[in-house]
Simulated assay, not measured.
Amino acid sequence: MSILHILNGDSTRYGFEQTGIEGDIMVWREVLSEGPVEENISAASFWHNREEWILKTFNEQPEDYQHKMLDELSKLNGQYDEVNLWFEFDLHCQANLLGVLAYMEQKTDLSLPAVYLICPGDFPGKADFRGMGELNGEELEYLFDNIQEQLSQEDFTIAAAAWKAYVSKNAEVLRKFVDGTEFWGSHHFLKPALQAQLNLLEINENGLNYIEQTLLDIYQSGIRTKPEIYLEFWKTEKIYGMGDAEIDIYARKLNLELK
């Protein structure tokens, strides 16, 4: 049986390579929680716009994006009997997961592969669990054996509707979807992630969204170095799943003078 594992990043890949789990690996190195998105993720324009934004925002070279993302994406054209999706609870991962599912539905004959989701919200013995990147091979095998969940066609339908609401970048549209959805299927962490996205679409009296205001509050409290700001932000805002580079996007918008 041919198996594909789609991993949420290289930090998970390092641990996954220590497991005895069979199958090919594809690493999803996108950040669909930021930047331009559109409903038709299989369109060439989608990936052109993503590449243009990634290169500008993170100062990468075209060949880097081609190698890190587009070459990996081509693996979804293969014929697999089983596909396992390894994504986490936060907005960063949930947005990427919606993108993967949208791409698969638009490009793949879903009558062939069985699609499974491994999506942990916590891990036994880890009080401040932040993601699979902190797990070793044995711990990832534990997740595979205990929380792997097969996705149904209804799960794909829910994901497609969520993706459409998400890419609208419209708070009213997204709120209507979140409030109007009573059954979330196997997407146990999608609702809180989309609620976090709503906070980014709503602008306060200072003209800032939730993350911008949070970072400004941290800065004005006297914390002025990047490492300290990152740590302070992560204490309360791990729902966003943001790394250093993503936080820097917002810090630059605010013109914060960081050490």
Rank of each mutant, 00 (worst) to 15 (best):
Q148N: 12
M1D: 13
E149H: 13
Q79N: 13
Y14I: 15
T108G: 02
K259W: 00
K107M: 11
E172M: 11
D145Y: 15
F189A: 13
E237A: 03
P62F: 14
A162V: 15
D90W: 03
G9L: 14
L258S: 02
E72Y: 06
P113G: 07
Q213G: 00
Y65P: 00
I158H: 02
Q213M: 09
V173P: 06
W28A: 03
I211V: 15
I249R: 00
R29D: 06
T108K: 11
K126A: 10
L198M: 15
E205I: 09
T214R: 09
A193D: 09
V178P: 10
W234G: 07
K235H: 04
D10C: 11
A196Q: 02
I118A: 00
L200K: 09
E232Y: 01
D10H: 14
L76Y: 05
Q106N: 05
E182R: 10
R29H: 09
W53E: 03
L101V: 10
I54D: 12
V27I: 14
I218H: 04
L117Q: 00
I147L: 08
E30R: 06
I203Q: 06
L55F: 01
E82V: 06
T214A: 11
R175K: 15
H92R: 11
K235I: 04
D128G: 03
G23T: 09
L194A: 05
T19Y: 13
L135T: 03
G125P: 03
L258K: 01
Q195N: 11
K107D: 06
S221L: 01
K259D: 01
G15M: 10
W53Y: 06
Q197V: 14
R29G: 04
Q94S: 04
G23A: 12
G180A: 14
E82H: 04
Q18E: 15
F89G: 07
Q197I: 12
G241W: 01
S74C: 04
M104I: 10
H5I: 13
A193K: 01
E138L: 13
V167K: 03
G131Q: 06
F123E: 01
I203Y: 03
L198E: 06
Y116S: 07
T19M: 10
R13L: 15
D128K: 12
W184F: 07
E38P: 02
F16S: 10
A161H: 15
S152W: 08
N49A: 13
